[in-house]
Design a protein around this nucleic acid. Structure first.
Length: 254
DNA sequence: ATGGCTACGATCCGTAGA
């Protein structure tokens, strides 16, 4: 089973990149973030032609998440139960025998801002939700854009980024609280090359300089980790014309 | 030097992302 996550930064703009990538990478499941379109505008027909069925939690202009799978995702749940939120950031569904939670975690804007406070409250609610889901599902994956670079080795220039949003200690602490539930960062289950990132700023030729951050992740439960055989980032779509600023991240399971 | 893109929905710039 091959599971991917990709922040497409507008599904309308990126649909050709997505269908090309699906044809080439052939994931069984993919979690999409930042659709930036409402459910009525979701391209079900195009994706069904590409061989995928979708569970969608869309929103006009901002946010929006979806899970695509070969068979229609089952037992779909949206949002974080008990956490009232206008922003459509979470959708969960079962694909095969794996429970998949697709997340678009808040950006946080800047440390100390209102959006930063929202981010930390949101992560606290996510942790409670995932604690509950782990009790219900031995094989759980949480995949998407976490907007946190967990360690300095996930940051191209840790000194320049020190204390900044995406990297600050309270955000990393929120990430570690997810790890403390028993979830594993699939990427770190394996030996990895240095300087692997999943996001590069559109400005300042960030991609060409590999000035990136690893903020997109696939977390897996202990039981699912036992079956994890590989984890990687595919930089290829970031090289295309008019790319998303994020690259797809991948985890594979036996 | 704190900027520099990109997408969106509203104009002919503001909001947001990360």
């Amino acid at each position: 089973m091959k599971l991917a996550a990709w922040n497409v930064n507008s599904l309308k703009v990126r649909l050709p990149h997505l269908t090309d990538w699906l044809a080439q990478a052939r994931p069984d499941v993919i979690c999409l973030q930042e659709l930036k379109l409402e459910d009525a505008k979701f391209p079900h027909a195009e994706l069904q032609a590409a061989g995928y069925r979708a569970a969608v939690f869309g929103q006009k202009t901002y946010n929006g998440v979806a899970i695509l799978a070969r068979a229609a995702p089952a037992d779909v749940a949206t949002g974080i139960p008990g956490f009232a939120d206008e922003q459509k950031r979470v959708i969960a569904a079962t694909a095969g025998d794996v429970r998949v939670v697709c997340v678009y975690c808040p950006n946080g804007q800047s440390v100390g801002s209102e959006k930063y406070d929202y981010k930390l409250r949101w992560f606290a609610a996510l942790k409670e939700y995932l604690a509950h889901e782990l009790k219900r599902h031995a094989q759980l994956a949480v995949a998407g854009d976490f907007n946190v670079a967990p360690e300095d080795r996930d940051v191209h220039d840790p000194k320049a980024w020190e204390g900044q949003v995406l990297v600050s200690e309270p955000e990393r602490s929120a990430w570690r609280a997810l790890i403390a539930l028993g979830l594993k960062d699939s990427f770190r289950l394996f030996e990895q090359p240095e300087k692997i990132y999943s996001w590069w700023d559109y400005r300042m030729m960030g991609f060409r300089r590999n000035a990136g951050l690893r903020i997109d992740h696939v977390l897996v439960s202990a039981e699912l980790a036992k079956h994890c055989t590989a984890s990687s980032v595919d930089k290829a779509p970031r090289k295309l014309e008019r790319p998303s600023d994020h690259a797809p991240v991948i985890a594979e399971f036996s």
